[in-house]
Every structure is written in structure tokens, then in C-alpha cells.
């Protein structure tokens, strides 16, 4: 199929993200990138695990972490992963408006998550847990902050796609772009699953 082809629900392909060569290339290239992201986060997790007991008279994980805020953040991000699945479901059904709606909900939930994280970090700083307090604090802020940076980037990415294509509607040129952005969003959630387990829950266990 050609990129500029006029599409109707009947002619819209079942997998619009992979209907063009460009889409196929984006799909593969993006998964290659996700392999690299896995390595990036692994190095940050490894550093954190090696340094998490080096608290240097600063606050420990057990003193610092509170379950309610972590639980709320987890629920927000997990739900935003489902709403982006809904967006891709509507993309495959060639329903641009519903796709935009669900992407909008995804962005709102992601923004809620980011706001909670900023609040959490400022609370920690007030409690005397700064970036340079201990090896534990540096590795914590680097790991969780890199993830938060990914969330912020993902939000800007999805928002840009929504605004840029608002009047264009759905076609085979932008379908791979939406699809790849949703993959990125799921990957952010995958990383968060390990963060809430390894950093927060294991930190609370001690």
C-alpha cells in the first residue's frame, strides 16, 4: 500500500503500522532501540542495587519510602498503559477521534504520575535526602529520575503527535508513528514495574 493512498474503513489495513516499508522499518528500528534502553536501565538498576545500603548517615529506604504514594503512582501508570492499548485498538479500527481521546486520557494519567513523582522528590529533599546525601541517594535519583525523564519525554512525544496530526486524520504515514509511541509508553511501564518492585517494595522490606 502507498503512503498517500486515500483510505476508508474498508481499505484500511489490519496492521496499519506495518503496511508500508517505512512503517516496517520504524517498527524494527524501534524495537532495536528498546533493546538498548533495556541495557541503559539495567546499568542504572545494577548501580542502585550495588549502592542501596551505602546510606552514609542519611535516610534509609525504610525511613523514606511510603507505600500509599508509590501505590497510587503505580496504578496511574499501569492504567495509562491500558488506555494506550485502547488508543491502538481504535487506530486499527480506523477511528481517529476515539484514538485521540484515549491518547488524551493516557497523557492525563501520565501527567498525574509525573506530578506525584515531583511531589515525592521535593518531600525527600525536605527530609534531607538530596542527590549528594549518599551513594544510595545518588543512585536512587539517577535511576528513578531517568525513568521520570522518559515519562516526560513520552508525554511530549504523544502530545506532539496528537497536535501535529489533529487535522490530518489517520493515514499510513502517521499510523506507525502512533504505534511506536505507544510501544514506548508500554516500555516505560515495564521499567516502572521493576522500579516499584526493586527500589520501593524491596526498600520497604529492608
Amino acid at each position: 500500500m502507498h503512503v498517500e493512498e486515500k483510505l476508508t474503513p474498508e481499505t484500511f489495513p489490519a496492521e496499519p503500522e506495518k503496511a508500508t516499508l517505512e512503517g516496517k522499518n520504524k517498527f524494527l528500528g524501534f524495537w532495536f532501540f528498546l533493546g538498548g534502553e533495556t541495557v541503559l536501565f539495567a546499568s542504572l538498576f545494577a548501580t542502585f542495587l550495588a549502592l542501596r545500603d551505602s546510606v552514609a548517615n542519611g535516610p534509609t529506604a525504610q525511613e523514606l519510602f511510603k507505600m500509599p504514594i508509590v501505590f497510587l503512582a503505580t496504578m496511574l501508570l499501569l492504567t495509562s498503559s491500558l488506555t494506550s492499548v485502547y488508543a491502538m485498538h481504535h487506530m486499527r479500527n480506523f477511528d481517529f477521534k476515539k484514538m485521540q481521546l484515549w491518547l488524551g486520557i493516557t497523557v492525563l494519567l501520565g501527567a498525574g504520575f509525573l506530578a506525584l513523582e515531583i511531589y515525592e522528590f521535593t518531600e525527600y529533599v525536605h527530609e534531607g535526602f538530596k542527590f549528594s546525601t549518599s551513594a544510595f541517594s545518588s543512585s536512587f535519583y539517577t535511576l528513578v529520575g531517568t525513568h521520570g525523564g522518559h515519562v516526560a519525554f513520552g508525554l511530549l512525544w504523544i502530545l506532539t503527535l496528537m497536535v501535529r496530526n489533529a487535522k490530518r486524520g489517520l493515514n499510513l504515514y502517521n499510523a506507525p508513528k502512533f504505534y511506536v509511541a505507544s510501544l514506548y509508553w508500554h516500555f516505560i511501564d515495564v521499567v516502572w514495574v521493576f522500579i516499584f518492585t526493586v527500589v520501593y517494595l524491596m526498600g520497604m522490606v529492608g
Binding site: 524494527l28 524495537w31 528498546l34 533495556t38 539495567a42 545494577a46 511501564d189
Partner: peptide, 30 residues
């Protein structure tokens, strides 16, 4: 959610598991 159960995901699986292997070695080493 990321559709890896669908066909046509052989190379994505290779890329991702390649990353996972390096991830395990890194964490193990540290």
C-alpha cells in the same frame, strides 16, 4: 500490550532478549 505474542515479532524478540541478557550480566557483575 506490546503484541509480542503476534507473529512477525522474531527480530523484536531477538533485540529485546539480547538487551535482557546484557542486563542480567551487568546486574550480576555489579
Amino acid at each position: 500490550f506490546m503484541h509480542m505474542s503476534h507473529k512477525g515479532h522474531e527480530l523484536p524478540a531477538l533485540f529485546l532478549y539480547g538487551g535482557v541478557v546484557v542486563a542480567f550480566v551487568t546486574i550480576w557483575a555489579f
